[in-house]
Write a protein that binds this DNA or RNA. Sequence first.
DNA 1: CGGTGCGTTGACATTTCTCAACTGTTGTGG
DNA 2: CCACAACAGTTGAGAAATGTCAACGCACCG
Lengths: 233, 233
Amino acid sequence: MAPGEIPAFLRSLSIFRGLDPPALEKVAALSRFMTFEAGQRVFDAGGKCDAFYAVREGGVKLYRLAGDGREQVMQHIGPGRTFAEAALLSLGVFPVSAAATETPTVVATIRGGPFLELFREDEGLARAMVAALSSRLHLLIERVEELTIANAAARLARHVLKLPAKGPADKPVVELPMAKKDLAHHLAITPETLSRLLRRWQDRGLVISDRRELTILDPQRLLAIADGEDADS
Amino acid sequence: MAPGEIPAFLRSLSIFRGLDPPALEKVAALSRFMTFEAGQRVFDAGGKCDAFYAVREGGVKLYRLAGDGREQVMQHIGPGRTFAEAALLSLGVFPVSAAATETPTVVATIRGGPFLELFREDEGLARAMVAALSSRLHLLIERVEELTIANAAARLARHVLKLPAKGPADKPVVELPMAKKDLAHHLAITPETLSRLLRRWQDRGLVISDRRELTILDPQRLLAIADGEDADS
DNA sequence: CGGTGCGTTGACATTTCTCAACTGTTGTGG
DNA sequence: CCACAACAGTTGAGAAATGTCAACGCACCG
């Protein structure tokens, strides 16, 4: 495993994003990657919680066994997500069981005892973690609000208007932050619909769409569309 | 203001949910409600961050002033959401300005200095906050995944399957956690569509829908629908 | 100079919404 | 205890939005 790989991976987790390198190194020192096969247990419900985890590759299911042996899957954890961190921090025991669902599943294990100690000693760590988590939470809340808007045009308009604007005040230019394909997925629409919406707006003089750049000609109407007021014309 | 109102409000915030009462009281002691009128400033960008906030009623916009005086609204914060907590914990200065958008807007102000002190002294507070935030984050990630599924039937099926099941193993019964109206909104569909979907499933013998209770007759097909594999039939 | 993949466009199918009417439930005041 | 208002839920018909499939252009890359 390449050196420096663990810190890089940890930094990609929402819980550690924004951590300064020294703190990251300290956490990395408590961590190692483990590989599981599909079905293999990571931990069992009821056990003492002595670590928390982050999926790097594959997937993990969190489940509970009912009295009659049925398993109720509570969550599927995919790459880039952590699990059992809340259990470690507040409960001390695992409230659910965890098992890999794919082969191979690579999971980073962060040792709980030393981590809690670090968390206690290093005030900056706790602060950075709360800050990172709450920022991410706000982003996701925004995203959910965006996705809850039924209208595809409104979703797109809202997203575009929230992008940072460059250029002159009367003709703001925004740069699409990702490929149109991915933007479409982000907005839960198809690339075709995205393409057609931009086309229509351009035809009606609302914007000029050029590759990744959007020049906004009529912010007023765009705002109306974002609020679902405009019949989108 | 009724006594005990502040702790009750604080507990409703994702950042403090799950805090034990004593800790909550300590935080509440640093907090008070303030009322703003639309347009009134809560704080200005660049100022020293000496507090963080939670909206109780009304709304707050976070914005930046561009060189030419234009304001770029970064976020709208509605009831039940906090703001500036990341700024307090990691930056120390406000990176944006904040102003009320409605009259009246009621905001809880948590004094930053004492709060940071509390955060440092009381290890349980920091742990509980991280635990609460990360739990909430996982919930929201689930929700985004759910909303990103194009198909309304798949969204509903997925949601239903994730509800805790009561009753016998061969005929699990789940209880809808909210009014159908609200469930529909949660899934970003109309109540009519929800009603028709349940009707169709019942007609085809997949479920029995009775008021708030759903008896699941054919988990297999339901799973297929959740994965978008079934032509929904 | 192909090849590969994104983006666009068109025609068509399907889903989902909208509007409107109706039913059933619940809670309230007489 | 009943009548009634208010509101959640259901159903139908038709409209509109969005997805699907297929073809094509265009840029980038080896």
